[in-house]
């Protein structure tokens, strides 16, 4: 047990340390935040690798990917960031190294309809 006098102001050394060290907070909206390289953010695609196999669409737990097929090789892969859970399952499910997650935020928009992105648009 600490001495009675010390326990009257037990945290004092910690307060002093905090004063010396200065704030630990990140001034986020005013200063940029560094995201690690492996951060799971916006879904991006290497369109040349995509074969339209729809494995990513099948495994997406949040139904954020959509495949509109118009023929054997004609299809559109649409990404809906507003539904995306940024879990990275599409990246895992892709056998052709086409779809992946980049380390950037998806900025908000006033209308959720504007968020959708056409990732691949192949016309056969």
């Amino acid at each position: 047990m600490a001495s009675p006098l010390r326990s009257l102001a037990y945290l004092l050394p910690q307060l002093w340390r905090a004063l010396k060290e200065g704030p630990h907070t990140v001034k986020y909206p005013f200063d940029p935040v560094e995201l690690p390289a492996g951060y799971r953010g916006r879904v991006i695609i290497r369109a040349e690798n995509c074969r339209g196999c729809s494995m990513c669409v099948r495994d997406c737990p949040a139904f954020a990917l959509e495949l509109e097929r118009e023929g054997r090789d004609a299809y559109r892969l649409i990404y809906h960031p507003e539904r995306c859970a940024y879990c990275g399952q599409c990246e895992l499910s892709c056998n052709f190294d086409a779809i992946s997650l980049s380390n950037e935020f998806v900025p908000g928009k006033p209308d959720r309809k504007d968020l959708g992105v056409v990732l691949v648009n192949k016309e056969g």
């Binding site: 307060l15 905090a18 004063l19 200065g22 704030p23 630990h24 907070t25 001034k27």
Partner: peptide, 9 residues
Amino acid sequence: LARFQGRVG
């Protein structure tokens, strides 16, 4: 108080 707590204030 914020400085004591490691915040900016």
